[in-house]
Amino acid sequence: MINSDKNRIPKQIHRFMGVDRKDIDWFPIIDFNKCNNCGDCVQFCAHGVFNMENGVLIVQNPKNCVVFCQACLKMCPKDALIFQEKKKVLAQIRQIKSQQKQSIDNY
């Protein structure tokens, strides 16, 4: 199965650093003061994070975004995408991991 269909939304099942991807706050936020809805990011991102809705860009599948990947930010002609600081997200992941460990230990 070669995934070249842009309309197909890939299912992201994996974990990141042992933490469920759903619990990690890593995804782009659109700066609408800069975005001109060119749709380049929709074409660019292979993980189906972005989509257009009535001519306006939306982050349709935020948790499909690859943790710590900022490739869309690099190619955005208007620099209109914003990500959280990596160190904050890493701290969040480590905190979830330690909570998981604690609950296993308590069990």
């Binding site: 199965m1 070669i2 995934n3 070249s4 890939p10 299912k11 992201q12 099942i13 994996h14 650093m17 292979a46 993980h47």
Partner: peptide, 24 residues
């Protein structure tokens, strides 16, 4: 200690590709 070994990475990627396909 937070990273994967060869086998862990291999199995992780294998599962990922089987579920998601290849992006091209």
């Amino acid at each position: 200690s937070e990273l994967m070994s060869s086998e862990e990475y291999f199995n992780f990627m294998k599962e990922k590709i089987e579920q998601e396909g290849i992006y091209q």
